[in-house]
Computed example of a mutant assay.
Amino acid sequence: MGLECIQFCGSPGGEVVQKTFVHPELAVDEVAVKVTHSGLCGTDLHYVTTDMVLGHEAIGVVHSVGSDVSSVKVGDRVGWGYPNWTCGKCEWCLRGEDNYCPNWKIYGMADLEQGSLSSLSVRKEQWLFKIPESMSSEDAAPLMCGGSTVWTPLVNHVKPYHRVGIVGIGGLGHLAIQFAAKMGVEVVVFSATESKRDEALRLGAKEFYTTKDVDDYSTLGVIKQIDRLMICTSSKLNLASFYPLLNPQAMIFPLTASDGELTVPYFATIRNGLSISGTVIATRFMQKKALEFAARNGVHVIAEKFPMTLDGVRAAMGRLKEGKMRYRAVLSWE
Protein backbone atom coordinates (compact mmCIF):
# COMPACT_ATOMS: atom_id res chain seq x y z
CA MET A 1 0.00 0.00 0.00
CA GLY A 2 1.26 3.47 -0.86
CA LEU A 3 1.94 6.28 1.60
CA GLU A 4 -0.12 9.46 1.39
CA CYS A 5 1.48 12.82 2.12
CA ILE A 6 1.02 16.58 1.87
CA GLN A 7 3.33 18.41 -0.53
CA PHE A 8 4.08 22.06 -1.29
CA CYS A 9 4.87 22.54 -4.95
CA GLY A 10 5.81 25.15 -7.49
CA SER A 11 3.44 26.05 -10.29
CA PRO A 12 3.75 27.68 -13.75
CA GLY A 13 2.45 30.95 -12.32
CA GLY A 14 5.12 31.00 -9.60
CA GLU A 15 2.71 30.51 -6.71
CA VAL A 16 3.32 27.75 -4.17
CA VAL A 17 0.42 25.29 -4.12
CA GLN A 18 -0.51 22.44 -1.79
CA LYS A 19 -1.12 18.95 -3.12
CA THR A 20 -1.76 15.44 -1.86
CA PHE A 21 0.38 12.64 -3.21
CA VAL A 22 0.49 8.88 -2.71
CA HIS A 23 3.98 7.37 -2.88
CA PRO A 24 4.18 3.94 -4.50
CA GLU A 25 5.52 1.01 -2.53
CA LEU A 26 9.18 1.26 -1.60
CA ALA A 27 11.86 -0.24 -3.80
CA VAL A 28 14.36 -2.48 -2.03
CA ASP A 29 16.89 0.37 -1.63
CA GLU A 30 14.43 3.12 -0.69
CA VAL A 31 13.59 4.77 2.63
CA ALA A 32 10.40 6.62 3.52
CA VAL A 33 11.17 9.57 5.78
CA LYS A 34 8.62 11.53 7.78
CA VAL A 35 9.84 15.10 7.30
CA THR A 36 10.05 17.23 10.44
CA HIS A 37 12.14 20.19 9.22
CA SER A 38 13.25 21.72 5.94
CA GLY A 39 15.62 24.52 5.16
CA LEU A 40 14.94 26.90 2.30
CA CYS A 41 17.62 27.74 -0.24
CA GLY A 42 17.99 30.36 -2.96
CA THR A 43 17.91 27.50 -5.47
CA ASP A 44 14.32 26.81 -4.45
CA LEU A 45 13.35 30.16 -5.97
CA HIS A 46 14.68 28.93 -9.32
CA TYR A 47 12.09 26.13 -9.33
CA VAL A 48 9.04 27.92 -7.95
CA THR A 49 7.60 28.06 -11.50
CA THR A 50 8.09 24.31 -12.01
CA ASP A 51 5.43 21.73 -11.19
CA MET A 52 7.47 19.86 -8.58
CA VAL A 53 7.81 19.47 -4.83
CA LEU A 54 10.03 22.22 -3.51
CA GLY A 55 12.82 21.99 -0.94
CA HIS A 56 16.05 20.02 -0.64
CA GLU A 57 17.38 20.64 2.89
CA ALA A 58 15.48 18.03 4.86
CA ILE A 59 15.56 16.49 8.30
CA GLY A 60 13.16 13.76 9.30
CA VAL A 61 12.58 10.43 11.00
CA VAL A 62 12.73 7.12 9.15
CA HIS A 63 9.18 5.82 8.74
CA SER A 64 9.83 2.60 6.81
CA VAL A 65 12.61 0.96 4.78
CA GLY A 66 13.01 -1.25 1.73
CA SER A 67 14.07 -4.87 2.15
CA ASP A 68 17.75 -4.27 1.26
CA VAL A 69 18.29 -1.15 3.39
CA SER A 70 20.89 -1.67 6.10
CA SER A 71 22.45 1.71 6.97
CA VAL A 72 19.38 3.24 8.64
CA LYS A 73 16.44 1.85 10.56
CA VAL A 74 12.95 2.96 11.52
CA GLY A 75 13.12 5.79 14.05
CA ASP A 76 16.54 7.13 13.00
CA ARG A 77 16.81 10.89 12.49
CA VAL A 78 18.27 11.52 9.06
CA GLY A 79 18.86 14.33 6.59
CA TRP A 80 19.36 14.78 2.87
CA GLY A 81 20.24 17.45 0.36
CA TYR A 82 20.52 17.83 -3.42
CA PRO A 83 21.16 14.31 -4.79
CA ASN A 84 18.99 11.25 -4.34
CA TRP A 85 21.03 8.72 -6.36
CA THR A 86 24.44 8.29 -7.98
CA CYS A 87 25.43 5.46 -10.29
CA GLY A 88 28.41 4.14 -8.31
CA LYS A 89 30.10 3.00 -11.52
CA CYS A 90 31.43 6.07 -13.34
CA GLU A 91 34.94 7.47 -13.00
CA TRP A 92 33.82 10.11 -10.52
CA CYS A 93 31.95 7.71 -8.26
CA LEU A 94 34.85 5.27 -8.28
CA ARG A 95 37.19 8.10 -7.28
CA GLY A 96 34.98 8.96 -4.32
CA GLU A 97 33.84 12.18 -6.00
CA ASP A 98 30.22 11.12 -6.39
CA ASN A 99 29.08 14.73 -6.20
CA TYR A 100 30.28 15.01 -9.82
CA CYS A 101 28.54 11.86 -11.08
CA PRO A 102 27.19 12.77 -14.56
CA ASN A 103 24.32 10.33 -14.10
CA TRP A 104 23.10 11.48 -10.71
CA LYS A 105 19.50 12.24 -9.88
CA ILE A 106 19.27 15.65 -8.28
CA TYR A 107 16.75 18.19 -7.10
CA GLY A 108 15.03 19.97 -9.97
CA MET A 109 16.09 17.42 -12.60
CA ALA A 110 14.73 14.09 -11.35
CA ASP A 111 12.43 12.70 -8.65
CA LEU A 112 10.30 15.84 -8.89
CA GLU A 113 7.78 14.37 -6.45
CA GLN A 114 10.38 13.99 -3.68
CA GLY A 115 11.15 17.45 -2.28
CA SER A 116 11.55 18.30 1.40
CA LEU A 117 8.57 20.69 1.66
CA SER A 118 6.30 17.75 2.32
CA SER A 119 5.11 15.55 5.15
CA LEU A 120 6.86 12.47 3.79
CA SER A 121 9.50 11.80 1.16
CA VAL A 122 11.04 8.66 -0.31
CA ARG A 123 14.81 8.66 -0.75
CA LYS A 124 17.50 6.27 -1.89
CA GLU A 125 19.45 4.88 1.05
CA GLN A 126 22.84 5.95 -0.30
CA TRP A 127 22.21 9.72 0.06
CA LEU A 128 20.72 9.73 3.56
CA PHE A 129 22.80 10.93 6.51
CA LYS A 130 22.31 10.24 10.20
CA ILE A 131 22.15 13.43 12.26
CA PRO A 132 24.40 13.65 15.35
CA GLU A 133 22.40 13.42 18.57
CA SER A 134 23.82 16.71 19.88
CA MET A 135 22.70 18.68 16.81
CA SER A 136 19.26 20.25 16.62
CA SER A 137 17.17 19.68 13.53
CA GLU A 138 17.00 23.46 13.03
CA ASP A 139 20.80 23.55 12.77
CA ALA A 140 21.03 20.40 10.69
CA ALA A 141 18.60 21.27 7.89
CA PRO A 142 20.54 24.17 6.30
CA LEU A 143 23.77 22.16 6.54
CA MET A 144 22.40 19.69 3.98
CA CYS A 145 22.99 22.21 1.17
CA GLY A 146 24.11 25.65 2.36
CA GLY A 147 26.54 24.21 4.88
CA SER A 148 27.97 21.61 2.52
CA THR A 149 28.41 24.28 -0.17
CA VAL A 150 30.86 26.26 1.96
CA TRP A 151 32.38 23.21 3.65
CA THR A 152 33.61 21.65 0.40
CA PRO A 153 36.11 24.34 -0.71
CA LEU A 154 37.28 24.89 2.86
CA VAL A 155 38.14 21.23 3.37
CA ASN A 156 39.57 20.70 -0.10
CA HIS A 157 41.60 23.88 -0.58
CA VAL A 158 42.27 25.70 2.70
CA LYS A 159 45.26 25.22 5.00
CA PRO A 160 45.40 26.41 8.63
CA TYR A 161 47.88 29.17 7.73
CA HIS A 162 45.68 30.69 5.02
CA ARG A 163 43.81 33.96 5.22
CA VAL A 164 40.29 33.34 3.98
CA GLY A 165 38.21 36.19 2.66
CA ILE A 166 34.43 35.78 2.83
CA VAL A 167 32.30 38.12 0.76
CA GLY A 168 28.81 38.57 2.12
CA ILE A 169 27.22 37.64 5.45
CA GLY A 170 24.04 35.82 4.55
CA GLY A 171 22.76 32.28 4.28
CA LEU A 172 26.13 30.98 3.08
CA GLY A 173 28.46 33.58 4.53
CA HIS A 174 27.49 33.24 8.19
CA LEU A 175 28.14 29.49 7.96
CA ALA A 176 31.41 29.96 6.05
CA ILE A 177 32.69 32.29 8.78
CA GLN A 178 31.97 29.72 11.49
CA PHE A 179 33.39 26.72 9.64
CA ALA A 180 36.55 28.60 8.65
CA ALA A 181 37.14 30.12 12.08
CA LYS A 182 36.68 26.79 13.83
CA MET A 183 39.20 25.25 11.42
CA GLY A 184 41.71 27.73 12.81
CA VAL A 185 42.20 29.95 9.75
CA GLU A 186 42.25 33.74 9.75
CA VAL A 187 38.84 34.95 8.56
CA VAL A 188 38.47 38.29 6.80
CA VAL A 189 34.94 39.46 5.98
CA PHE A 190 33.89 41.88 3.25
CA SER A 191 30.38 43.26 3.42
CA ALA A 192 28.38 46.08 1.91
CA THR A 193 26.68 46.53 5.29
CA GLU A 194 28.59 48.07 8.19
CA SER A 195 25.78 47.03 10.53
CA LYS A 196 26.93 43.39 10.33
CA ARG A 197 30.41 44.08 11.71
CA ASP A 198 29.72 43.02 15.30
CA GLU A 199 27.93 39.88 14.20
CA ALA A 200 30.74 38.86 11.84
CA LEU A 201 33.31 39.28 14.60
CA ARG A 202 31.13 37.37 17.04
CA LEU A 203 30.87 34.49 14.57
CA GLY A 204 34.65 34.26 14.34
CA ALA A 205 35.94 36.83 11.85
CA LYS A 206 39.21 38.59 12.74
CA GLU A 207 38.80 41.51 10.34
CA PHE A 208 35.82 43.25 8.75
CA TYR A 209 35.78 45.66 5.81
CA THR A 210 32.86 47.59 4.35
CA THR A 211 32.91 47.81 0.55
CA LYS A 212 29.86 49.96 -0.13
CA ASP A 213 30.71 53.03 -2.25
CA VAL A 214 34.41 52.02 -2.37
CA ASP A 215 35.81 52.06 -5.90
CA ASP A 216 39.39 51.07 -5.09
CA TYR A 217 39.59 48.14 -2.69
CA SER A 218 43.30 48.72 -2.17
CA THR A 219 42.21 51.66 0.01
CA LEU A 220 40.22 49.45 2.40
CA GLY A 221 43.23 49.04 4.66
CA VAL A 222 43.40 45.24 4.49
CA ILE A 223 46.48 44.48 6.55
CA LYS A 224 47.60 41.37 4.70
CA GLN A 225 46.83 39.68 1.39
CA ILE A 226 44.11 37.02 1.01
CA ASP A 227 44.86 33.40 0.04
CA ARG A 228 41.32 32.13 -0.55
CA LEU A 229 38.27 34.20 -1.44
CA MET A 230 34.76 32.76 -1.01
CA ILE A 231 31.97 34.61 -2.81
CA CYS A 232 28.91 34.03 -0.62
CA THR A 233 26.71 36.86 -1.85
CA SER A 234 24.18 36.60 -4.66
CA SER A 235 24.88 40.20 -5.68
CA LYS A 236 26.71 40.67 -8.94
CA LEU A 237 30.35 41.47 -8.17
CA ASN A 238 33.25 42.84 -10.11
CA LEU A 239 35.86 40.27 -9.12
CA ALA A 240 38.59 42.54 -10.44
CA SER A 241 37.96 44.80 -7.44
CA PHE A 242 39.38 42.11 -5.17
CA TYR A 243 42.49 41.42 -7.24
CA PRO A 244 44.69 43.99 -5.41
CA LEU A 245 43.91 42.14 -2.15
CA LEU A 246 44.91 38.66 -3.32
CA ASN A 247 48.15 36.82 -2.84
CA PRO A 248 49.80 35.16 -5.85
CA GLN A 249 48.20 31.76 -6.47
CA ALA A 250 45.11 32.75 -4.54
CA MET A 251 41.90 30.85 -5.26
CA ILE A 252 38.44 32.34 -5.77
CA PHE A 253 35.30 30.29 -5.13
CA PRO A 254 31.97 31.56 -6.53
CA LEU A 255 29.43 29.73 -4.37
CA THR A 256 25.99 31.13 -5.15
CA ALA A 257 23.92 29.80 -8.04
CA SER A 258 23.54 32.56 -10.59
CA ASP A 259 23.22 33.19 -14.29
CA GLY A 260 25.13 35.56 -16.55
CA GLU A 261 28.83 35.68 -17.30
CA LEU A 262 31.82 35.59 -14.97
CA THR A 263 34.40 38.09 -16.18
CA VAL A 264 37.89 38.65 -14.78
CA PRO A 265 41.05 40.46 -15.90
CA TYR A 266 42.94 38.16 -18.24
CA PHE A 267 46.58 39.15 -17.73
CA ALA A 268 46.33 39.74 -13.96
CA THR A 269 44.86 36.26 -13.59
CA ILE A 270 47.67 34.47 -15.40
CA ARG A 271 50.47 36.75 -14.14
CA ASN A 272 49.56 36.04 -10.51
CA GLY A 273 48.59 32.40 -10.99
CA LEU A 274 45.08 33.00 -9.71
CA SER A 275 42.48 30.23 -9.87
CA ILE A 276 38.72 30.51 -10.11
CA SER A 277 37.25 27.23 -8.95
CA GLY A 278 33.70 26.03 -9.32
CA THR A 279 32.45 23.76 -6.58
CA VAL A 280 29.32 21.83 -5.75
CA ILE A 281 27.93 20.21 -2.63
CA ALA A 282 29.94 17.77 -0.57
CA THR A 283 30.57 14.14 -1.39
CA ARG A 284 28.73 11.65 0.80
CA PHE A 285 31.85 11.18 2.91
CA MET A 286 32.39 14.91 3.33
CA GLN A 287 28.72 15.58 4.08
CA LYS A 288 28.95 13.12 6.95
CA LYS A 289 32.14 14.80 8.19
CA ALA A 290 30.58 18.26 7.90
CA LEU A 291 27.75 17.23 10.20
CA GLU A 292 30.16 15.68 12.68
CA PHE A 293 32.44 18.75 12.62
CA ALA A 294 29.54 21.16 13.07
CA ALA A 295 28.13 19.17 16.00
CA ARG A 296 31.52 18.83 17.68
CA ASN A 297 32.51 22.48 17.24
CA GLY A 298 29.20 24.24 17.79
CA VAL A 299 28.43 25.56 14.31
CA HIS A 300 24.96 27.06 14.58
CA VAL A 301 22.57 28.34 11.95
CA ILE A 302 20.99 31.77 12.26
CA ALA A 303 17.51 31.15 10.89
CA GLU A 304 13.99 32.46 10.80
CA LYS A 305 11.41 29.80 11.58
CA PHE A 306 8.14 29.19 9.75
CA PRO A 307 5.38 26.59 10.10
CA MET A 308 5.19 23.91 7.40
CA THR A 309 1.84 25.13 6.13
CA LEU A 310 0.84 26.67 2.82
CA ASP A 311 0.84 30.14 4.38
CA GLY A 312 4.17 29.44 6.10
CA VAL A 313 5.85 28.23 2.90
CA ARG A 314 4.52 31.18 0.92
CA ALA A 315 5.68 33.63 3.59
CA ALA A 316 9.16 32.10 3.69
CA MET A 317 9.45 32.11 -0.10
CA GLY A 318 8.35 35.72 -0.25
CA ARG A 319 10.84 36.83 2.36
CA LEU A 320 13.63 34.93 0.60
CA LYS A 321 12.72 36.47 -2.77
CA GLU A 322 12.77 39.96 -1.26
CA GLY A 323 16.26 39.36 0.16
CA LYS A 324 15.13 39.99 3.73
CA MET A 325 15.85 36.57 5.25
CA ARG A 326 18.21 36.48 8.22
CA TYR A 327 19.95 34.26 7.25
CA ARG A 328 18.31 30.95 6.46
CA ALA A 329 14.70 29.82 6.71
CA VAL A 330 13.71 26.63 8.48
CA LEU A 331 10.17 25.28 8.21
CA SER A 332 8.84 22.61 10.52
CA TRP A 333 5.79 20.48 11.17
CA GLU A 334 6.41 20.71 14.92
Rank of each mutant, 00 (worst) to 15 (best):
G147H: 08
F21S: 03
S218I: 01
P265Q: 07
T233I: 08
G2M: 01
G147Y: 05
G75R: 12
K236V: 15
V185I: 10
L320H: 04
N103D: 10
N156R: 15
T36Y: 09
R271S: 14
P24Y: 07
S71W: 01
W80S: 12
M1Y: 03
W104N: 12
E133L: 04
A315L: 02
A200H: 04
A200C: 07
G39N: 06
C101W: 02
T149D: 05
S234M: 12
L239A: 01
S121E: 04
Y209S: 08
S148G: 06
G165Y: 12
E91C: 05
L175T: 06
P153D: 11
W333P: 00
S38R: 04
T269W: 04
S235C: 02
P244Q: 10
F179Y: 15
W127P: 00
I226E: 02
F293P: 00
A295R: 03
L203F: 09
V122G: 09
K289V: 00
N238I: 11
W151Y: 15
W333D: 07
V22A: 15
N103C: 00
E57S: 06
A257C: 02
I106L: 03
V299M: 08
E322M: 14
E15C: 11
D68E: 14
A192P: 00
V16C: 14
V264N: 02
T36C: 10
S64C: 10
M286Q: 15
V78C: 07
A250V: 04
S234G: 15
V72G: 06
S195A: 14
I226Q: 06
A303Q: 09
E304G: 00
I131H: 05
D98S: 14
E138D: 13
L45C: 08
K236D: 08
I231F: 06
R326A: 06
T279N: 11
V189R: 04
V299P: 03
G75A: 11
S195Y: 03
L331H: 01
V62E: 05
C90P: 06
T210S: 12
T152S: 14
H63L: 11
L45V: 09
I270N: 10
S332E: 11
L26C: 07
